[in-house]
Each structure stands twice: as C-alpha cells, then as structure tokens.
Computed example of a mutant assay.
Amino acid sequence: MTQERYLSKTVSQLKPSGIRKFFDLAAGMEGVISLGVGEPDFVTSWNVREACILSLEQGFTSYTANAGLAELRVEIVRYLQKKFNVSYRYEDEVIVTVGASQALDIALRAITDPLDEILIPEPCFVSYGPLVSLAGGVPVPLHTKAEDQFKLLPEHIEAAITDRTKGLLLCSPSNPTGAVLNKKELEQIAEMAEKHDLIILADEIYAELTYDEAYTSFPSLKGMQERTILISGFSKGFAMTGWRLGFVAAPAALSQAMLKIHQYAMMCAPTMAQFGAIEALKNGLQDVEQMKKSYRQRRNYFVDSLNEIGLPCHLPGGAFYAFPSIANTGLSSEEFAERLLLEQKVAVVPGHVFGESGEGFIRCSYASSLEQLQEALRRISIFMKNFQ
C-alpha cells in the first residue's frame, strides 16, 4: 500500500522550500556563519516581552475575538494612519493573523477561483507561488532584471495580462532583492491596476525597513485602497519573528471574506503575542528606529565590501538582504552556495529558489552582527580567489 496515492495532486507537485535545504546543510556543520536566515538578530524589546509576561501572569490565556483583540486592532489602525497615511476601521477591516504568511494565505484563498491568474514579480519570496497554487490559482511570474534593480515595471504587467488575470502580488521592499518602489513607480503600477481591474495584494512586511527615502504604502495612493489587500506584521521591523503575529487590512467586503477562512482555519492569533504587539505599537517605535539605523550601517558596509570582493551588487533600498551576482564565477547559484558552505562555512541562499529570475545571484542577509559580517566577507573573499 502506498500512501502517496491519497495525496492531493497540488500538494504532490509542490517543491520543498529551497531555503530549508541550505538551513539543514548548515545545521549539521560546526563553525558556520549563516547569512541565509531572513530574521533580525535583535531580541524583541524588553518592554514588549514584559507585556506578554504580564498578560500571562494576569491569566489572559483564553481565545480572543476571531479578528483579534479590539485594543490591538485599534492600535494597528492608529499606526497605519500615522505612519503610512491609510485609514481603516478596526471593527471590520482589520484581522490579526498568525504571521504575515497566514495573512497572505487567507487573502489568496478569499479572492482566488480555480485557474485565476495571480501576477508575481520575480525574484520573490519562496511561498508566493505555492500559496497561489494551494488556493487553486495559477502563479504567473513577471521577470525583473538586475539592470532595473529588480524593480517591477508597467510593461512587465502589460505583457502578462490575460482574460484570467485576477491580481498582482506586490512586495516592496522586496525579499530577496531589497528593491523598493518609490511613489512615482507605484503610481505607474496603480494605473495598470486601474486599467486592467486588478486586485493588489501588497506585502509590506518590510515597510519599516527602508533607508534612503520616505516609504509609500500602496493603498495610500489615490483610488487604490478599495482594490488593495494590505499585508504586514511584527516579525521583521519589530524583531518578533517567533511571536508569529501579523495583520491584514482591506475593505470590509474583502476583510470579512478573509475572516471566514481565518475562523475555520485558525480561530485567532495567540493571545499573549497580541498583548505584546499592543505594547510594541504603543511604545516600541523608537526601538524600531534604532534597529533600522543599525541595518542601514551594515547594509552600506556589506554591499560595498561585496562589490570590492568581485560580487556586483546594487544598493538595496530596504529589508535586510543583499542580492549580488555570481555570474562571473561561472557557477550556478546552487553550485556557488554549496561550495561556499562546504569550503568556507558561509551559508547563503541560491537565487534560483526565488524564481527563474534569481538564477546567477545569491541572497545574503546582513541582519547579523558586524563582527559576523566581517568574518563572512573575509571567508567569501578567500573563496572568490578561486575565480580570479
């Protein structure tokens, strides 16, 4: 008897995460410096941890409302208004989720009918395509280029439009490239959304981590809030990855559809994490600014050093990733990553796992201490001498 015959065809055809392969390899080796993890190296601020502990001591261990604590949703609405100039109703337009990943999952399932096409700029985070497929849709990659700093252009969208196109999944700042779309560039995409009646899934989980210009939230653009599902959370900017807390904000008709899925699949996000998030929004933004300042310093040092070593890299405008080209080595991105790990014990992620457009590049996270970055660069420099 083979259990495989019981599996869903959709799930059977999904590829395992390419990132996990290299995490597993690195985990079995001593002395590895990992530049592969998309996670802040900061510990969650003490006042946030303390608020969580206090909620436990006070016995707040039961379910919350499906959409999350009302106080947290109020704080999310205030935060979005003050920080990004977008206004939502906490009562029926905001849902607290188990990370931004769950927010994206319920958003896609709420809007996607079988064979609907969702446009996805690549390189992109590894879960985007699989989540579209699991929702019954068809992921359609839009191939961006290094010479454009991996930014999505209107012509990419125009060329991919069919009568089945339902929406566009937009991530700015981008994982893995760090690309940030400015207001003018977003307005051009907004024009395409209007022209082709697209719904936009705006993954803005890295919105707090932009370094060179003011951030523009997509739903803040004229006429775009009504056709945008805003996805964000606390993992990256607030250094709360393990708390698994995100949120989604959208017009009520969309939000309430997502809430139905959330009710059946998840019930609610963890109660104690929600109390921590309230404190993060009320009194944690100064800590976010300090982390952002540190990331910016590391980014400048790390990207300058990569270019000096012989790995051409554009200056990413946000997130905490560098995406250098390894084309001059003659290796595939997977060969490069495997050899670098085995020969110099530095873990990076091969670019091809982020889509076909990522081949010839590697993703390096600079969310590590300066000392670790310096040592990693020293080892990479030794490795690169093989190709000079």
Rank of each mutant, 00 (worst) to 15 (best):
S8D: 12
K9V: 07
K15T: 13
R20Q: 13
K21V: 15
F22V: 10
F22T: 09
F22A: 02
F23T: 01
G31N: 12
D41V: 09
V43A: 13
T44W: 06
T44Y: 04
V48D: 00
R49W: 08
C52W: 10
L56Y: 10
E57P: 00
Q58E: 11
G59H: 09
A65M: 06
E71V: 13
R78G: 07
F84C: 03
N85T: 04
Y90G: 00
T97F: 06
I106H: 05
A107T: 14
A107P: 06
I111R: 14
L115M: 10
D116S: 13
I120Y: 05
F125P: 02
S133D: 00
G137C: 03
L142H: 08
L153Y: 02
P154V: 03
E155Q: 12
D163L: 09
R164H: 15
L169H: 11
L169Y: 08
N175P: 00
T177A: 09
G178K: 05
V180C: 07
I189R: 02
M192F: 06
H196L: 05
L198I: 04
L201M: 12
Y206G: 00
A207Q: 12
L209W: 03
D212H: 15
T216L: 12
S220V: 02
L221Y: 15
G223R: 02
T228L: 08
S232P: 09
A239I: 08
G242A: 03
W243K: 12
V248T: 12
A250T: 03
A252T: 12
A252D: 10
Q263N: 13
M267H: 14
A269L: 06
G276E: 02
N283F: 07
Q286D: 15
K293C: 05
N300R: 09
N300K: 13
F302A: 10
F302P: 09
I309N: 10
C313Y: 02
Y321S: 14
Y321C: 14
A322T: 04
S325N: 05
A327L: 14
T329R: 05
A337I: 08
C364N: 01
Q372W: 00
E375P: 04
K385H: 06
